[in-house]
Every structure is written in structure tokens, then in C-alpha cells.
């Protein structure tokens, strides 16, 4: 019984942190769960913060990056083809 409890104590946190998508240990060195991300409100992320929206044209993205002084995170995806 004692052995089972010890095994659970080791593996359960690992499984939980894997399910959350990142290790708990990393939270400590960044001063919080997500650094400067807004706090949850009533247990939920504010919609504006939760939803990522994506630019796809250079002109807009480059201007926004420069004016807001944020790096661009560009995902290049070999996605579907639309013949237009």
C-alpha cells in the first residue's frame, strides 16, 4: 500500500503537468504561470487574450510589429491548396 502511494506521488504530478502542456517546474523561474499574461477572470481567460489571431500579409504584420515593438512569430505551414 505504501509502495503504491509513493508511486502515485511521483507519477501523478508528472502526468498532470504533461496534460497541461508544460512542466510545472518551469513556472517558478518565470515569475508566474505565463509571465506577463493577463490573469484569469473567474477561472477563465479573457477572450481577447485567449484567442490568437493571425496576420498573413507582410504589410500589416510588419507595421504592427514595428509600432507595438513586438517580435513576429511566423508559422509556415504547408497547408491546403485553394485554387482561386
Amino acid at each position: 500500500m505504501k509502495t503504491n502511494f509513493s508511486a502515485a506521488a511521483i507519477f501523478v504530478p508528472i502526468i498532470i503537468s504533461l496534460f497541461m502542456g508544460y512542466p510545472k517546474a518551469d513556472e517558478a523561474d518565470s515569475g508566474g504561470v505565463l509571465g506577463n499574461i493577463p490573469e484569469k477572470i473567474n477561472g477563465q481567460w479573457p477572450n481577447d487574450a485567449r484567442d490568437t489571431f493571425w496576420y498573413s500579409n507582410y504589410e500589416t504584420a510588419a507595421r504592427v510589429a514595428k509600432e507595438s515593438q513586438r517580435p513576429i512569430l511566423m508559422v509556415i505551414n504547408r497547408g491546403a491548396v485553394c485554387e482561386v
Partner: peptide
């Protein structure tokens, strides 16, 4: 969403 200008 908070830290980057996201481009896809």
C-alpha cells in the same frame, strides 16, 4: 497572442 505579432 500577448507577446507576439502572429503570422500564419
Amino acid at each position: 497572442a500577448e507577446n507576439f505579432v502572429c503570422v500564419r
